[in-house]
Design a protein around this nucleic acid. Structure first.
Lengths: 344, 344
DNA sequence: CTGAAAGCGCTTACAG
DNA sequence: CTGAAAGCGCTTACAG
């Protein structure tokens, strides 16, 4: 920069001004500076700038896994909205491990990210975590009950409620649930919504019909095996995330159970591949699922964070209103049908 | 930091020394400093450090897409090897758009990343790109022919060669190819390997049996539709990436063609979901594919880059030897069978 | 409109 | 073993 200033015969302050396209610099000088920059192949140093302005225009995001269609869509949404705003994103994978998550967070803080987007593997501990008071953080996907900070999630309870309702409306009464992690809002709310619909319909939620799948493919697979081998098995199964659904699907295949004739399958979260291609549509039968607006979640969480970053910080007390709850959609395909009893 | 120094009654140099756990500081002072850090909730500022040491311990990686099982596995590999080495990764999505890629690269440079990992959407232009002379870059997945810089790729040609060979060994003679982008090494080499095997077997590669799928699901779908509706259709189809394979699969389903009885399908790249769960195994029939060591590609590319970063830079002239070519593996499942003619 | 100077928070020779 | 000082490459009041 000094070299540029010297070559252009101006002060570094002037160079700085043209680099940041501040107005009020004489055109002649602007040109001289630009020529000098070109001649010297000068590229401004963001890190020096960051040090001075105390802002890195970087946001840190930590998600529980990379190999997830859902979180990758969210990540796309984040990047697509952060980039145009001039922000870079440091994407970290906690691998659903709290220690890893904290380690990531701490390097993000030391790298002075301006804000953080987090899908915590343990949102309940948020309160007692050592966050930095002046770097805003917005949660997404998972949020502890009663959390009042900024967050964007999906209406899990409502979605599960409607899913169960749908199965019930078809005549199912023996409906099983493959539940997710009970320590995550997503898992809890989805189970709750399911239970609510069942209760409302006066249907029992049999203990042996609810299996813990922990959001893992293997869990869904095991649960499926157990459920389908019961003498008095369910006529429909609601699986509360996509990995478990796939595990369940595998169990169905292995056991040669016919879906949807023998058992209906309703999953949470669609498996999109590319625009217009969902894995759910490639399977036999095509999967009926509740689809989450993953990309939008990413966009909105980022917008929320960016909003906080520009606002005077002491403006709003990040009230109750700051948690956005997006709608899901039920994609009716072919894995759900009325139970055999209702078909005769 | 000054505050810490003052509270601990030492100089900032000493604080710096304990922060970086340099040895040779009197234990008493170490303790005093650590206590002071705790008391003041002091956290070292990486960006200031970076400015001084002229190193950010950050690597930039740009991949052509987020919503890709392959690239996400690579990303996992990258993160998993970069993190333990103390490096953060700035992950960018070029969306297979050259302009976007260059924009990302330029912000990565301005943020002073120490090195770059790139799966370029146009590796051929590498030579005339405005890279920074002193930030090393290692390519992966795609590499222009004749490229001599560091890179890690897969033995595409060999993999395709063996895949075709496998189909031929089963008795197939009318084998179609759904080719990928012809301007990418991956696309070219896979087609070449296929052709080589065919020639070697004295089999014609009929012009109407090779379709351009451009590595896209839609392309595979269209190609499939055309191929399968020929009066004299192929008995086997080799699809050169996973998206096209899925598109092709959809076409097969829609047309109600029986696979593998009527047509065999061999794909490139497996679709892993989670450890132990591949999408390819969930489809009917389960897909026979060439699997790439995606995670390993990420690890190795990162190791290579890290290696360059520690080495004296003027050490080796990044010779020919620096391009690593990993092996693939053929996963034989159920979408390939001998042609009907050979079965009778 | 432009320049000289201070300073962002660190590290690193250099003395002592 | 430790401290004082310079400097990394910028930006930003502050004069002029």
């Amino acid at each position: 920069m000094r070299d540029v200033a010297r070559l252009a015969q101006v002060s570094v302050a002037t160079v700085s001004a043209v680099v940041n396209s501040k107005q009020g610099v004489r055109p002649v000088l602007v040109n001289r500076v630009q020529d000098a920059m070109k001649a010297l192949d000068y590229h401004p140093d963001q890190v020096a700038r960051s040090l001075k302005v105390r802002r890195t225009t970087t946001i840190g995001v930590v998600i529980p896994e990379f190999a997830s269609g859902f979180f990758m869509e969210v990540a796309r949404g984040i990047e697509d909205t952060a980039r145009p705003a001039g922000y870079s994103v440091l994407l970290c994978n906690s691998n659903d491990d709290l220690a890893q998550e904290e380690r990531h967070l701490s390097v993000l803080f030391s790298r002075r990210v301006d804000g953080i987007l987090l899908a915590s593997t343990d949102p309940y501990s948020m309160g007692r975590r050592p966050f930095r008071p002046n770097v805003p953080i917005v949660l997404f996907d998972r949020v502890p009950p009663g959390y009042t900070g900024p967050a964007v999630v999906v209406d899990n309870r409502g979605a599960a409620y409607h899913a169960a309702k749908y199965l019930i409306s078809l005549g199912h009464t023996r409906i099983a649930l493959i539940a997710g992690r009970v320590d995550l809002s997503t898992g809890i709310e989805r189970s709750d919504g399911f239970r609510e619909a069942m209760e409302e319909a006066g249907l029992p939620v049999r203990a042996e019909f609810v299996k813990q799948g922990s959001f893992k493919a293997e869990g869904g697979y095991q649960a499926g095996l157990e459920l389908l081998q019961m003498r008095d098995r369910p006529t429909a199964i609601f699986s509360v995330n996509s990995k478990m659904t796939l595990g369940l699907f595998k169990a169905i295949q292995e056991l040669n159970v016919c879906c949807p004739d023998d058992v209906s399958l309703l999953g949470f979260d669609d498996l999109v591949l590319t625009e217009g291609f969902s894995f759910g549509e490639l399977l036999k039968p095509e999967l009926t699922v509740i689809a989450q607006p993953a990309y939008r979640i990413g966009c909105q969480a980022t917008e929320m964070l960016l909003g906080i970053l520009v606002r005077p910080r002491d403006g709003d007390p990040t009230g109750e209103a700051s948690i956005a709850r997006l709608k899901t959609e039920l994609y009716i395909r072919h894995s759900v049908a009325p139970p055999a009893s209702a078909r005769n």
